[in-house]
Write a protein that binds this DNA or RNA. Structure first.
Length: 483
DNA sequence: CGCCAATTCGA
DNA sequence: CGAATTGGC
């Protein structure tokens, strides 16, 4: 525990806890340490859209609920949460001065713009003689800690994760503070107060689908983790790739916004069977992605491999739009894109299929796909999202070879064998028999008419010939090979 | 966490 | 002769 201040009159000065991507009470080092001072606590959260990457629409919807829920949870302890909007440095330093706080606690951010802002704010506060206490809670380990023997950053996930394994287990999660004492908020100008509800998108249709799918509260996230660990984890490897089975953890949005912590996930999944499964390495990819983001500020805008700067991406706005709206004419792609639009989430296997289709078959710049995911995923993550898009495009670390091009029809045969995924999200072709479902354009008229389908009217023909698109991509990617 | 075609396997 | 495996792209 660090040094504490007492104000000159001898009263306990309040301490401030600045919440960021850690919207929970459990395993929250900043809140935990603030509570341990025994002094009254004020909590604050700031939307600073000019620092880092402003959250996309679906993430804002999730944030709205998570903030309302956090405010309620803190209110049970009579601790206030100020939800503000504007320049974080101005707002935090001003709040600290005005409530005569002696200490400010936060859990560090990793995104480079935000990390730099944290450093600036720490300096500004310390000039005011306010102590800053910083912890790491959003990752199992601070970025940059694990290095190769040559002192370099790992370029290959497998090596990175092995090194992480031999570096020992991460610390156990902290309990939620049992006793918290709130302080009164000072008067806040109306123009800096943010009503979380205003973060929700105005499209009622969109918000409706999100509300049916997600419950952005710490309690629900904790419950989901426990349920996954107890009932689903043991068969994770067998079911994770089944598009319709729901065999994945679905914890991505909770992790992204910090309704649960990676250390809690780690602890919940330590059975022998769980450790042998592929699940923990998914957590590892998240660590690896943040490790990359920490030293690559332009991760979402620049190819990690320069050779990809010469790829001639197609400008094809109509095809991009068809992809976004789920009307490419390839059922498995359309099902996935509609799942994304309707629920704010897409199965991981489906993410690979639609990304490969956009970047390879349509030869459209991965950044266009990355941006669409950023806007529409409730779990849109500044590290995972660009790292995975660059992985598919081949421009990233440990990327797929340029000639690895998913055939969406074969993928559908392997991972949507029953057709349940396509039938759920592309109902207009649901009456096709299994063997015809994934390739309506290849079916004779009688099969189509029995299923009530008129190509180009009730369902489109593919916007790209799969074989031709594949060959075009191979040609375009040729010059990305190492010399 | 490839595709495809050639080749080998195995009932 | 179809399924499984292999190797180049």
């Amino acid at each position: 525990m660090a040094r504490h201040h007492q104000d000159r009159s001898g009263h306990d000065s309040p301490v401030i806890v600045w919440f960021r991507e850690d919207l929970r009470l459990g395993d929250h080092p900043a809140l935990h340490d603030a509570a341990a001072t025994g002094r009254p606590v004020i909590c604050v959260w700031v939307l600073d859209e000019k620092t880092g990457r402003a959250p996309g629409g679906a993430a804002r919807w999730f944030l709205a609920g998570a903030l309302e829920s956090l405010r309620d949870d803190l209110a049970h302890h009579d601790v206030p949460l100020a939800i503000l909007s504007g320049d974080a440095q101005t707002l935090i330093t001003d709040l600290a001065r005005r409530c005569k706080a002696g200490d400010v606690f936060w859990n560090d951010r990793v995104e480079p713009d935000q990390a730099a802002q944290d450093d600036r704010i720490e300096k500004a506060l310390e000039q005011d003689d306010i102590a800053v206490h910083r912890s790491m809670a959003m990752l199992l380990r601070r970025p940059g800690v694990l290095k190769t023997n040559g002192g370099k950053h790992y370029q290959v996930f497998g090596a990175y994760w092995r090194a992480a394994g031999s570096a020992g287990d991460p610390p156990d999660p902290l309990p939620a503070p049992r006793k918290l004492q709130g302080a009164r908020l000072p008067h806040l100008d109306a123009n800096i107060i943010l009503d979380p509800a205003s973060l929700r998108p105005s499209h009622p249709d969109w918000a409706g689908g999100l509300a049916e799918t997600w419950e952005p509260t710490e309690d629900a996230a904790t419950e989901r983790l426990a349920h996954f660990a107890r009932h689903e984890l043991s068969d994770y490897d067998g079911r994770r790739d089944d598009l319709a089975a729901g065999g994945t953890s679905r914890l991505s949005a909770d992790l992204r916004h910090g309704l649960i912590s990676p250390r809690q996930v780690w602890q919940a999944t330590q059975s022998t069977r769980a450790r042998a499964s592929g699940f923990l390495s998914e957590l590892g990819w998240r660590e690896f992605s943040y490790d990359t983001l920490a030293r690559t500020p332009d991760l979402a805008s620049s190819n990690l491999r320069d050779r990809f700067d010469h790829v001639k991406w197609r400008r094809a706005p109509a095809e991009l739009k068809a992809w976004q709206q789920g009307r490419t004419g390839v059922p498995i792609v359309d099902a996935a894109m509609r799942q994304l639009w309707q629920t704010g989430w897409m199965h991981n296997r489906a993410r690979m299929i639609v990304a490969s289709f956009l970047v390879k078959h349509l030869l459209i710049d991965w950044r266009a796909g990355e941006q669409w995911f950023w806007d529409t995923l409730v779990d849109a993550d500044p590290a995972n999202n660009p790292v995975n898009w660059q992985w598919v495009a081949g421009s990233g670390i440990e990327a797929t070879p340029f000639f690895r091009i998913f055939n969406p029809v074969l993928q559908a045969g392997k991972f949507d064998r029953s057709g349940e995924y396509v039938r759920t999200f592309v109902p207009e072709i649901a009456k096709l028999p299994d063997r015809a479902l994934q390739t309506p354009w290849e079916q004779p008229d009688d099969v189509l008419s029995r299923a009530g389908i008129t190509l180009d009217k009730t369902y489109p023909r593919p916007i790209v010939d799969l074989k031709g698109g594949r060959e075009r991509a191979l040609e375009a990617y040729k010059n990305t090979e190492p010399a």
